[in-house]
């Protein structure tokens, strides 16, 4: 038990996959300073053992050809009772249960309005307008959606009901959270209520991991 405990202390729960791009570099630097998170270069994924980590974080700058090539590795990680957070637009089928991104045809700026499908701890205290608008301009949060897998739990939608954020607990033995926008963990240190998301999401991810472990024990 002692060994197991010390292993947990040393191994960060989160594994952040660095796309290596300029726009991704700010997040990468931030995550490198985060004691909860270990950062790997995306092209090191094939030779990397994911199993010591609990939560894999991949953003929209990632090379999806590489992710498709590694889809079995990702599925195995999830089937071990772990979590994947993907934020971005899917154009290749590497993510279990997920469909490809469908861009929204915009007729009016209100088509970008974000709605809560039902209350969820990740978005507690967050105002929908703070997601929709940035300095009065809409369209930053999500510009399309991924059609959901069977039994997925929808968290956020666009004006026409398109699900932009969902949780899938059925396609694998773990949990997948898909968001069709920028990295949801990046919503912190903001001047409005959207800044609550980063911390609340992190707390929820830890809690979800515990729930998966319990599900596995009882099943």
């Amino acid at each position: 038990m002692t060994n197991h405990y010390s292993h947990d202390l040393k191994t960060p729960s989160f594994l952040f996959v660095d796309s290596g791009t300029y726009f991704g570099s700010q997040t990468t630097r931030k995550e490198q300073e985060n004691p909860d998170t270990y950062v790997i270069d995306i092209y090191d994924l094939p030779s990397y053992d994911l199993s010591p980590h609990k939560i894999l974080v991949i953003d929209g700058f990632a090379d999806q050809h590489l992710l498709l090539q590694q889809s079995e590795q990702i599925r195995q990680f999830l089937d071990q009772g772990n979590i994947l957070l993907f934020s971005g637009n899917l154009f290749l089928s590497w993510l279990p249960g997920a469909s490809l991104f469908v861009p929204k045809t915009i007729h009016h700026h209100s088509d970008y309005n974000v709605h809560f499908h039902h209350p969820h701890p990740i978005f507690e205290g967050v105002e929908a307008d703070n997601l929709t608008y940035n300095k009065g301009v809409s369209g930053f949060f999500a510009r399309g959606h991924h059609p959901i897998p069977h039994q997925a739990e929808v968290l956020l939608t666009l004006e026409g009901g398109e699900p932009i954020t969902y949780i899938d607990r059925y396609s694998t033995k773990g949990t997948i959270l898909v968001h069709s926008g920028s990295n949801l963990l990046g919503y912190s240190m903001r001047s409005n209520t959207s800044g609550r998301i980063g911390t609340q999401l992190k707390a929820w991810l830890y809690e979800e991991y515990e729930q998966i472990s319990k599900r596995r024990i009882t099943s």
Binding site: G60, F61, D63, Q64, L90, F91, F101
Partner: peptide
């Protein structure tokens, strides 16, 4: 091409 979604589109 680095295989990301915006480049693909």
């Amino acid at each position: 091409y680095s295989g990301n979604s915006h480049q693909h589109r």
